[in-house]
Amino acid sequence: MGFEPFIHFMREMHGKLNASIFGGAQGMSSQQIAYLRQLQRELDVERALNVPLCELDVVVLDLETTGFFPNKGDEILSIGAVKVEKGEMIEAKSFYSLVRYEGTLKKEIKEITGINEEMVKNAPSLSDVLIDFFSFAGDMPIVAHHANHEKNFLQHVSWKLFRSPLKHRIIDTSFLYRIADKKNDNKPLEEWCLDNNIVVENRHHALGDAKLTAKLWCTYVKKVQKSGCETLRDVYERIAAK
């Protein structure tokens, strides 16, 4: 049973999953939880390792959040993503949603993201948005800039809401520029973009940042291939050898 039945199953569980974003998998039977876990296990995460980078289809993701620590109560405010197919960003294949949040946002979060309480109080629930995002992403690897942020939040909410570990492969853009540029500078996204002649716009908007990251990814795919890395497996092996 593949990824589409997994999405269909999660949609069938809509009412129970949406009962409370704080309720984890409340209302789901142990059999249902086990079934969902099994479907997640069937994601073919290994296939991506051997596909030529120029042919590797990925989903580039960015999250705007209330802070940096999901295990300490920080939450997702918006999710933006865009697909890269055969080395090119497909702008028409994009995803964006605000996420319901009923608390008070810190002033600096509102200033940075442009998101305020009015915008998110009636937004879709996190479980609804995640189901839509996973349906959009399918079994594609997920790319993010400074990906630990996205990885930590997705792992946290996947377990909290669905009682299922996140099985998607998550790839950090740093994997590529560590090889192509032989450095691992912890620079913000806009500096990497400017260094590569990518026009910076819609910064700190989840979809805007996803598109910038996608352009950066496409640029560095070409660079690392020139250095002799043809596949993601080659990238990992080159990094491990450093």
Rank of each mutant, 00 (worst) to 15 (best):
P70Y: 09
H145Y: 11
V129Y: 09
S94D: 10
L126G: 00
D128F: 10
E118G: 00
K110L: 02
V157H: 12
K106D: 12
V58R: 02
E108A: 02
V60W: 00
L49G: 00
D139R: 04
L105D: 04
K121G: 00
E64K: 13
M89Q: 06
G73K: 13
E102W: 01
N152E: 14
D132E: 14
C54R: 15
L56K: 10
A92W: 00
E88W: 07
S125K: 13
V129N: 05
H146V: 08
I112D: 00
N71V: 13
R47L: 13
E111L: 10
D57I: 12
D74Y: 04
W159P: 01
S158H: 12
S94Q: 12
K121Y: 01
K110S: 08
I142H: 06
I109C: 06
F153C: 07
H156S: 04
A92P: 01
E55S: 15
P52I: 12
E91I: 10
T104H: 08
G114E: 04
F153A: 09
L61I: 06
E55G: 10
I79Q: 05
G87R: 08
V82S: 04
E91V: 09
L126P: 00
S158K: 03
D128M: 09
E55A: 14
W159N: 03
L53H: 09
E150S: 05
V82E: 04
L56I: 11
W159Q: 05
V157S: 07
M119W: 01
K106I: 02
S127V: 04
L130M: 15
T104M: 09
A81G: 08
H156P: 02
L49E: 12
Y101M: 03
A123I: 02
